[in-house]
């Protein structure tokens, strides 16, 4: 067992409540080593060329999704950090990214020419994926609040050749207020919100050690404020993807439900993903959520051998 679940009985109790008879399966997968996944950076190289180059090095490459050839699994025993030290990584031909973390941008489906805001962008995995789908055309505002995180973001965007981006440094809520005052709005927004990270315990067991229910409540408040702020600067007809790498309903369905109750011009959208997922919850403990939440996606490690994520897509109506 890679995790000390005994030290976090409340976490276990909550996951049992969330998963019911899937719980044992979840524990089995979360205790396995994570898959080594990468995403070809098609701004610099095609998926086919990258696959060929890596196979010539002796790496065994699998492409699990026909419609997303850029998503690859490196099926090989590698030393820790080896994926990030290869020549192809240094040259920006791929990004080391967990498959579940690629899904919010697939749900957002940014297109060349659109104006896109990535509100909490560091370290840049999703920003580089957005730029790739936009073929470096249109505009990406990639924001984060902390300078040290922005340095990593800038370095990753540069390595991947992202030319259509502006990196801003601002508190997310404040940034939205400022754009709103300047009458600047966006076709699409990604809000990959800061979260308690329950979905990442497979690759990062220390997340479990720092797990704390009060942190979940406090993050939930922040996430609601961020989502409300972001919706103000979304164009009419525009779409926002809200995602977290956690399973806690307070940080997921409760956040979406709060804006659906408050804003009558916001609707949920169906999401099509290349992996299996469970529908969002419509109740948690004593709380009842909008039935629209069924359209959101709960990604658990045992469903498609990934990490955990939550994704919801909203559209702003007139």
């Amino acid at each position: 067992m890679r995790h000390d679940f005994d030290s976090k009985p409340l976490f276990v109790e909550r996951m049992k409540l969330l998963l019911g008879n899937e719980f044992e399966n979840y524990i089995e997968y979360v205790s396995k080593p994570d898959l080594k996944s990468i995403r070809a950076n098609t701004l610099k190289i095609s998926a086919e060329e990258l696959k060929k180059t890596l196979e010539e090095k002796g790496w065994n490459i699998k492409q699990p999704f026909k419609k997303n050839p850029e998503i690859m699994i490196v099926d090989l025993e590698l030393l820790p950090g080896e994926l990030g030290r290869s020549l192809e990584h240094i040259l920006g031909y791929y990004y080391v990214q967990e498959i579940a973390s690629m899904l919010p941008v697939i749900a957002l489906n940014p297109k060349p020419g659109e104006n896109v805001l990535d509100l909490c962008a560091s370290p840049g995995s999703k920003t580089t994926q957005i730029a790739m789908m936009m073929k470096n055309q249109g505009l990406i505002i990639a924001n984060d609040v902390k300078l040290d995180r922005i340095k990593i973001l800038a370095s990753n965007l540069e390595r991947c050749g992202v030319m259509n981006q502006i990196i801003t440094r601002c508190d997310g809520i404040n940034l939205c207020e400022k754009f709103s005052r300047m009458n600047i709005s966006f076709d699409k927004i990604l809000l990959d919100a800061p979260c308690s990270g329950e979905g990442t315990i497979r690759s990062t067991p220390r997340t479990l050690q720092s797990w704390n229910i009060n942190k979940i409540y406090s993050l939930s408040n922040l996430q609601k404020k961020l989502l409300r702020s972001a919706l103000k600067i979304l164009k009419i007809g525009g779409e926002i993807v809200y995602s977290t790498c956690t399973h806690a309903p307070e940080e997921n369905e409760e956040v979406i439900d709060s804006v659906l109750r408050e804003l009558k011009n916001v609707k949920t959208e169906k999401i099509v993903l290349p992996v299996k997922c469970n529908p969002g919850l419509i109740s948690w403990k004593e709380n009842k959520y909008s039935k629209e939440l069924k359209k959101s996606c709960r990604i658990y490690p045992h469903l498609s051998n990934t990490e955990g994520f939550f994704i919801a897509k909203l559209r702003k109506m007139k």
């Binding site: 922005i150 800038a154 965007l157 540069e158 050749g161 992202v162 030319m163 259509n164 981006q165 502006i166 990196i167 801003t168 440094r169 601002c170 940034l175 400022k178 005052r181 300047m182 600047i184």
Partner: peptide, 15 residues
């Protein structure tokens, strides 16, 4: 771009 720069810290633009 200049309008944004007056209000928000732009760390970088382009590569």
């Amino acid at each position: 771009l200049k309008k944004i720069e007056k209000e928000i810290v732009i760390e970088r633009a382009g590569i």
